[in-house]
């Protein structure tokens, strides 16, 4: 099921000449499509397609106690399920590392970027706050699930309405949708992952290209501010290439945000 070595060698050979199988430039993303409200019981939802990669992200909200160290702030929980439905490589069973990493990396990007106004998610300080559950489901894996999931998380949050809350009985009235948006700021924390393939950098890899990647760096970035980062895989990376990756990520962010805003309009 793994990409054969001969294909990986070919990918590297092409890339050395600045070429990719599908004719894209190294930093060029595949066609992006976003569809909102794809699961109506969710507080908000979005389907994101990057070429043949497809994810669905949904938002649910619940009321719970705040954490002791942030009594006046709402909570965030991001999880990802890498469904066996989405790829012959994914096996059924408890979440394995890639699913955990996907959830955690996107969680940090959202959390640290000031995108969500957590204080406005407080109902009663120290007692009751809203928890945002962001759940990512893979539908078709053709590489770069991380970035697709991150775009989906931002899109689904922007699509979400806070459900009504019956304070007296401490019950969330999920089926009575309000018109109140989740409190979000102008930040657009997009997770962008650069891959080192040979001595080149590429973005938005297909499955085969992702397999050719020796190491990857995911940057959570918004308006030039980096608020999360993770280097993945075992190969080391020189600081020059690392710097180049971040610079490229910043440009990619601009392109992506422009594309995303078109779907939001």
């Amino acid at each position: 099921m793994k990409t054969p070595k001969i294909t990986i060698d070919r990918i590297k050979k092409y890339l050395a000449e600045g070429k990719r199988f599908d004719g894209r430039k190294p930093e060029e993303f595949r066609d992006l499509e976003i569809e909102f409200g794809v699961s109506k019981k969710a507080e908000g939802s979005a389907r994101v397609k990057l070429g043949n990669t497809e994810v669905i992200v949904g938002i649910k909200m619940g009321v719970s106690e705040p954490y002791p160290d942030s009594p006046n702030k709402g909570n965030l929980m991001v999880t990802a399920e890498l469904l066996p439905l989405s790829s012959p490589r994914i096996e059924a069973g408890p979440p394995r590392f890639p699913a955990i990493e996907l959830g955690r990396v996107i969680d940090r990007g959202l959390r640290e970027s000031h995108f969500i106004d957590f204080e406005k998610l407080c109902i009663e300080p120290g007692k009751k706050v809203w928890t945002l559950f962001v759940d990512i489901y893979t539908i078709n894996d053709d590489g770069n699930l991380l970035d697709a999931g991150g775009i989906g998380a931002v899109a689904a949050l922007m699509n979400a309405k806070i459900p009504k809350y019956d304070e007296e009985n401490s019950r969330v009235l999920h089926d009575e949708h309000s018109e109140e948006n989740v409190p979000l700021t102008k930040e657009r924390p997009i997770s962008i992952t650069g891959y080192k393939v040979g001595d080149k950098i590429l973005f938005d890899p297909t499955r085969e290209e992702e397999d050719a990647g020796e190491t990857k760096v995911t940057v959570g970035i918004s308006h030039g501010i980096i608020s999360s980062m993770q280097k993945g895989n075992e190969t080391d990376l020189d600081t020059e290439m690392f710097g180049e990756m971040i610079d490229m990520a910043e440009k990619v962010w601009q392109d992506l945000v422009t594309k995303i805003e078109k779907f939001i309009k």
Partner: peptide
């Protein structure tokens, strides 16, 4: 999907 119903289901 955890969000396919009113009360979120644990994945």
């Amino acid at each position: 999907n955890s969000f396919s119903v009113s009360d979120r289901i644990r994945p």
